[in-house]
Design a protein around this nucleic acid. Structure first.
Lengths: 342, 342
DNA sequence: CGATACGATGTAAGCGGTTGCAGAGTGATT
DNA sequence: AATCACTCTGCAACCGCTTACATCGTATCG
């Protein structure tokens, strides 16, 4: 009954079909679609009507070809289930959008081998690429560095690689966290590690290990930075008889605490637990988690700024490391007394 | 010292530059790049070398134009911080990838108005679109239905709209959850709602409201489906003096429980709390959350299958609703006794 | 040894947009 | 009335890649 038909079967309309329907040239349609003011109102209206009628959408591919860019940038990250990553991506996304860029995010959940492939694949589609907490081997990074598409490295610093980078100072923050623990009287801690492909993990462990200067003896058990990962290695962490467990990140800590509860071990009365990142959940679980607050929003902004500068071929000033700060909550306490001072 | 230079400044190499460098035609380069076997090994090697040397990557835009498709599909969803969405997207992603499609995900966190715009924008870039738990008004959905690009609707059913859809049966599952609560003796519950733009929220509330047939008196307080959202409305939920709180989703439940703890209210001794979705965190928080387990993976698969069929112009059999089942854990208990039976 | 078939490579025509430039129309100026 | 200055449209080239088709060389066969 209505004029418009569900044209699901038909081919997608092109600019020239619209042009024909409106009785104008493709140039005019193009101008109308992109809001070029140099078109008489009545023509514009005709074109709009025709376009509307056929449900015309300009082809992104064609547009990208002609314009030389689709204004997309890509970001690749390890795992979106970790809210930490999501928070920084969200910030980048806002920043990018404000500058008229679309953002394609790709997560390679677990399959670290895919990361490089994903990066290369994306390279053909985007104007620039952000690698967040990348696990790509240095050689791969070097390859990426000599592409003509700008790439920036976030939360990883690799001296031999010629890429703009920005990162938060994991080492110092972790040192502070260890200081907090030492002050509470802890002398035996185990670090529940994340992937050793992760620069952040290496930095964090480096700090924990170094905390022997604070009188802390540190052990390490391997995990993978997930809730289940933490849950599963908790028992093997306990064989070291630590008074505190420092987890690679908050997710791991959640898993650890969950397991501890199953085991009847009280936190922090029997053992203290700390996380890293300060994701939202950290302040809502019981007990509220002592952790390190990363400047996620700032990091996202800086990353975008860096990419943006590189895109415009500007200097691309590499930033100093961003600072994180420890936030003390209820999951860490003095040894054997049970309750944390605040 | 090395041959290759960091050509960051130079223009991105095109196929014809590679062709010239290798002394062949662009057709040959194209064939080599796409692994066409009808090229002699030595030529192929020469081309590869040249391409490598100049760090050549075919332009996605040009490729897409020539091929008529970039093999991208888009998915739009409300908020990636909710692990639920991520889980189903992950599944779609795997399925799509297996079929050679790339997946662009766009989250419009909060800004519901952006969803339609995002959809339209994406329409030009992709072969198909999946709308997950869409909040787009029916009129918008109808518009989308007559585009030539296939669109499928997930977790929303809208009778007047001619779009393939698949959803989980929220209503029945919620009824079961209410049954569980009724059986424990609960007679006054409040439903901590999500966005009323959300179909799932409407279905869930519809079920809760209907639980009066089970002798349950139901109240409703509005929230937004986030942890903080739950946290913030808890007190106003309590004014109804309920013995149980049913939350729109697990995230909300986490916030509610967190607040309850602050308030000194014991769960489930003083009041029971239930969630919905069964995200990973649900079984790790204290107390472990009673919730409804959605068939996330199945949903993702089905959604992809549906899109895939539509892409190939096949019938596109709309599926019956998927079933969810309630999983009882420690956050719900009999009224005033304090501990749940298992 | 010439005809035939086939495999390897190049030529060129699109794919669907954008845009510099030219041409047509209009009103104002002289 | 002829000229000029604009404004509005259309023409056509081009963006980088794919691919049908033509071409060329060589091995195969009668």
């Amino acid at each position: 009954m209505s004029e418009v038909r569900t044209t699901s079967g038909t081919r997608r309309p092109t600019i020239s079909m619209v042009a024909k329907a409106a009785g104008v040239s493709t140039a005019t349609v193009s101008r109308v679609m992109s809001g070029n003011p140099a078109v008489s109102p009545e023509l514009a209206a005709r074109v709009h009507a025709a376009a509307e009628e056929m449900a015309y959408r300009p082809s992104g591919a064609a547009r990208g070809l002609a314009l030389g860019s689709l204004r997309n940038v890509g970001v690749i990250l390890p795992d979106l289930v970790n809210a930490y990553f999501f928070d920084v991506v969200k910030q980048m996304h806002h920043a990018a959008r404000a500058d008229g860029y679309r953002m394609l995010v790709a997560d390679y959940s677990g399959a670290a081998d895919d990361e490089y492939a994903t990066a290369v694949d994306l390279l053909g589609q985007v104007d620039g690429l952000i690698l967040l907490s990348s696990r790509i081997p240095v050689s791969g990074l070097k390859d990426l560095a000599m592409q003509s598409t700008p790439v920036v490295l976030v939360n990883r610093v690799e001296l031999g690689v010629d890429l703009p980078m920005v990162a938060v100072d994991n080492f110092t923050a972790m040192m502070e966290l260890c200081g907090h623990l030492a002050q509470l009287g802890h002398r035996r801690v185990v670090y529940v590690a994340g992937s050793d492909l992760s620069w952040q993990n290496r930095e964090r462990w480096r700090a924990v290990e170094m905390s022997k200067v604070l009188g802390i003896e540190a052990f390490k058990v391997d995990s993978d930075g997930t809730i289940d990962g933490g849950f599963n290695v908790t028992e093997s962490a306990l064989v070291h008889e630590p008074t505190a467990l420092i987890c690679f990140n908050d997710l791991t800590a959640v898993g650890v605490i969950s397991k501890l509860r199953d085991l009847g071990v009280q936190v922090p009365a029997d053992v203290s637990v700390a996380g890293f990142d300060d994701v939202e959940i950290a302040r809502h679980i019981a007990p509220r988690l002592t952790t390190v607050q990363s400047p996620k929003a700032q990091l996202g902004d800086q990353a975008w700024r860096l990419l943006q500068e590189t895109l415009r071929n500007e200097p691309g000033t590499s930033l100093p490391a961003l600072n994180a700060k420890v936030v003390i909550r209820d999951s860490t306490g003095t040894i054997s007394t049970g309750m944390a001072r605040d």
